[in-house]
Design a protein around this nucleic acid. Sequence first.
RNA 1: GCCCAGAUGGCGGAAUGGUAGACGCGCUGGCUUCAGGUGCCAGUGGCCGCAAGGCCGUGGAGGUUCGAGUCCUCUUCUGGGCACCA
Length: 848
Amino acid sequence: MSRYSAPDIEAKWQSAWDQAGIFRAQRIGDKPKYYVLEMFPYPSGKLHIGHVRNYTMGDVIARYKMATGHNVLHPMGWDAFGMPAENAAMASGGHPKDYTYANIAVMKKQMKPLGWSLDWSREIATCDPEYYGQQQALFLDMLAAGLVYRKNAVVNWDPVDMTVLANEQVIDGKGWRSGADVERRELTQWFFKISDMSGELLDAIDGLDDWPAKVKLMQANWIGKSRGLQFAFDRTDGGQIEVYTTRPDTLMGASFVGISPDHPIAKELEQHRADVAAFCADARKGGTTEEAIEKAEKKGFDTGLRVRHPFDPAWELPVYIANFILMDYGTGAIFGCPAHDQRDFEFATKYGLSILPVFEPNDDPITDLTDAFVPAKTDTVRYVRGFAGADVQTGADAVEAAIDHCEARGIGAGVTKYRLRDWGLSRQRYWGCPIPVVHCATCGVVPEAKANLPIRLPDDVTFDIPGNPLDRHPTWRDCACPSCGAPARRETDTMDTFVDSSWYYARFTAPHAATPTVTEDAAYWMNVDQYIGGIEHAILHLLYSRFFARAMQITGHLPQSAIEPFDALFTQGMVTHAIYQTRTAEGRPVYHYPDEVELRDGGAYLRADGREVEVIPSAKMSKSKNNVVDPVNIVASYGADTARWFVLSDSPPDRDVEWTASGAEATSRHLARVYRIAVECAATPDGTGDGDADLLKATHKAIDDVTKGIESFGFNAAIAKLYGFTNTLQKSTAGGTAQKLAARTLAQLMSPMTPHLSEEIWAMLGGVGLVSVAAWPVADPALLVDDTVTLPIQINGKRKAEISVPADMPKEEVEKAVLAMDAVVRALDGAAPKKIIVVPGRIVNLVI
RNA sequence: GCCCAGAUGGCGGAAUGGUAGACGCGCUGGCUUCAGGUGCCAGUGGCCGCAAGGCCGUGGAGGUUCGAGUCCUCUUCUGGGCACCA
């Protein structure tokens, strides 16, 4: 074969790999193990270019590790439960199960031609009873270990459709289908006690040396450790209001107490006061997201209740119900210090509350807090001298001093709190893992017996009306109480799909076992050595997985050593694309795939009927917005190696990229050129040419550059070096022996990115066996150093000339040589330089 | 609103505090070709200049340094996350 033909080459080598079974991971041999995992996909039914980017990156690592002598585990599966399948069922009348498995089949068919080194024998789908049954077993063990409990929590409630909405289904505070104003409503739900591990999850971040700093920072902020004072205000009508504050040093500036609309006091008032009930109902409008709550207009309601300031019983503060106070954080009640908090300031201004400065700027610092907390003489300014601008007590010191002071006076206690809330896992939906518990009239909530697992989802369900089909199924709920045997009812809530993805990495080590994990397999393969996925998972998925690894260790499903499941993490950037939108007659948005849209005359139009579409700026490729680009066209037109090389070559892996396919053809031409060069090298007679010293050096430089590039996830930079090496090889006249060696090395260095082409070239040039398993080349350090270096010469920091000198020339001689240069003599104009800076091998700078 | 990132030619981007724009795309010119494509060669940040060369230049404003795309402060815009999208 004399021309590059991707389809022939790729099919041939894929079947060669299959026959050799080189991607089948087995727990044998004495090679060090290496577990590389990319975040598994939701089976949307359409492989998109973001998937290709993600899995190709992982494949480069997996193949590189295989070549460097590791026993590699590189599995693939499906995060297969979730809302889209139910939405599809509601829209088109099919069944979520059929929809999901059909999508899996399609995507798998799209994935196979890309030549990823996946061990398909370990394929799992979270919607398979074989998987979710084991998840139910895990849940029961966690329940027994006290890691799961029930409590009330708020959900988005659509009062028209009478159903719970996901945050995604709340658009501008309204239900996506009904358009009704969404309300926050409480339901009894199941929770994982992740907050019990707040401190540990925070502290252990320090040990995650191979995680991106930004992810660790985001997680730390999310867990949100704070130090503050918890104390009670006495109500003038008896009783107390418990408050937590991180700013006890501003206590003297308090002008009101605020409580959440969900606070027990608010709820009690609501029972018999119509005005309170009306305010609380209004405050509960809108979605449950923190963003919606924080951005909502700040509203308060004076309950008429009054509390006494802890330092001065005569000083009374009003109690407001405020819509921005979260019941989930602290005690659900705060004191407001408008002089030192922006939100409190706005609130106080709106409701005409006093603003009392606590700090007197530019005053002498004082350290005696007993004095400091004595109210000042005037009624209008009760300040504490000295905190602001003080050298001795600022920030955390001031807070700690204030806590000490309050404790000494018997007012509350210093406490450490975390922002992290327990993880609510209940979902009022069908297409998820059933929560394996039973509600019995006599025994209460009873765990299902393990022998009855898996609790399977029923197939005979309908989606013609909103709500959870499990709730209205005629018989599925009916069961016998595992404890007393009496008729009982199943829990109809299913689990959050985050549960499914919180332990799949462990399941991959023994994907078809009759227990969640197998000790020997987990001990051998865990931890994941390299985890790769989108930055959008920086907080939730990764934190939940860290929690689950701990929970699985507590329940005996993972070894102690796997307490942190992911040794190294790489967060790839997202592939973004413009969103094309039209609207229905009712005004609901309809999203169109980019390939349905034609761009012309500065506008965008539907190919089908020519209607103009609205172009919404780029966002991450997402099934729900249809702004996904299908890579199969590139694979079909140019082959897998082109697609792989193309997605890796143009942008740094951790950066977001706006997708464009322009350049794919040029990539294909480059690969054809590499092939042609290899053919020419194969045909070049041995022993001709000008010798091989330069080519050999270039070869070893390429080995060094590409190796470093792969190890540091600098795939685009590694590819740039490969272009350079290819150009060098193409121009080389070193002779057949040297050129063949260089071309074979080029094939090897390219093999993690373009494995099919590399195999072909490797075989053509007499490589032994498969290049995929050939030992990775090692650069000879002696060939990496240059004898002479070119130093730029700056005058006052501006480059004026350059000089070529031996690499080991002493500083003084470099100086002498530089000062003798015409350009330097001219610039100095007879004067002596004030300073000469010589950085060996780098630069010379003259200050004149 | 809060937390985290990012911003460099026409485009994607490169650059341990040390020659900004490697490498690629695109474009321009040339050779090859009946022609198109392919292939090969050369050029390609802006401004001034015949040239040699000079000046400017990494979102914006300051600062540290012999030297800043890189470090610090402030700021603008874009992207991600905000606990029921996955």
